[in-house]
């Protein structure tokens, strides 16, 4: 059975055999919503300034039975090595909140895009010196953005920045340099 965690939220009732969807329109029971919120608050292992929910990689959470939860997670890049750490972190948080059995499943479809990063997530990236991705032009269908498109320097705000390399410290970033302040910086590249 699900033991309520130390959260100050009202104690969720033991889920009935057939969970009643909440009125919020998400199709989740209140308990599922609470657990999804907890899992989504886990920080990204490589970009700890943003949470998994802000990064847009949480795809869903389902209570399979008393004390058994399945979480769906989508990778940013197919080979992203952070996925395993994300899964371990989610398991730990849900264990700590009284769910003994947590299965994290990786789903690919529909593919993650940088448009899934929330406004708050973008703000936090910029604040930490990582230029957030530009919104994808739906017509262009994503992919490499022309070099001419301005990316703003997260340090001084100048748009006079140049591409040093399309690949940087993690799979999701490109390396740029600002012509105005001279600082190199990471750019979360559009995908």
């Amino acid at each position: 059975m699900v033991t309520p965690g130390p959260s100050p939220a009202p104690t969720p009732p033991t889920p009935p055999a057939a969970p009643t969807p909440s009125a919020s329109g998400t199709g989740l029971t209140p308990l599922e919503e609470e657990l999804l919120r907890l899992a989504g608050a886990v920080p990204d292992p490589e970009l700890p300034m943003v949470s998994l929910a802000e990064l847009g990689v949480m795809r869903g959470l389902r209570l399979l039975g008393p004390g058994r939860v399945e979480v769906e997670l989508t990778p940013t890049y197919t080979g992203c090595p952070a996925v395993e750490t994300m899964a371990t972190d989610i398991e730990r948080v849900l264990h700590d909140h009284g769910v003994p059995e947590v299965a994290v499943r990786t789903v690919l479809s529909p593919p993650w895009t940088t448009d899934a990063i929330s406004a708050e997530g973008r703000r936090k990236l910029a604040e930490s010196g990582i230029a957030p991705p530009a919104p994808l032009d739906a017509a262009a269908g994503g992919g490499p953005v022309p070099v001419a498109l301005a990316v703003r320097c997260p340090h001084c705000g100048s748009t006079e920045t140049e591409l040093l390399s399309r690949f940087s410290s993690t799979a999701c970033k490109a390396l740029r340099r600002c012509a105005a302040c001279g600082e190199p910086f990471d750019h979360f590249k559009e995908l």
């Binding site: 197919t78 529909p110 993650w112 992919g143 399309r166």
Partner: peptide
């Protein structure tokens, strides 16, 4: 569908 965006890079 996922990997084609990576391969474009």
């Amino acid at each position: 569908a996922k990997a084609v965006k990576e391969v474009a890079y």
